[in-house]
């Protein structure tokens, strides 16, 4: 988890740190209707993160027995709740 966080944090911070601070060019340099730095520094990593999440959840993560469960039926009248 920490590794994933580091990779995506590095991507957005590095790319946007280098390209997002150009006030003059940001309005002309568009991609998909938004400033190019937004498209490549936020939207593309967001899409990648989404795909990675799907792969992690549906392919990588293993099912585990979470352990026994106490009966959730209502206790008899007068029985302690705790």
């Amino acid at each position: 988890m920490l590794g994933t966080w580091v990779v995506f944090a590095a991507w957005t911070l590095t790319y946007n740190g280098l390209h997002a601070f150009d006030a003059e060019g940001s309005g002309q340099n568009l991609l998909w209707g938004m400033p190019r730095w937004v498209a490549l520094g936020i939207v593309v990593p967001w899409g990648t993160g989404f795909c990675l999440t799907c792969w992690f959840a549906l392919r990588f993560m293993k099912d585990t027995d979470l352990g026994g469960e106490e009966s959730s039926e209502k206790p008899e009248q007068g029985e302690e709740a705790k």
Partner: peptide
Amino acid sequence: GWVVGWWIAGYMIVPMV
């Protein structure tokens, strides 16, 4: 403006992390 997209960008991996 658009910089707030960067402010919220951490949500791209919130479900996984």
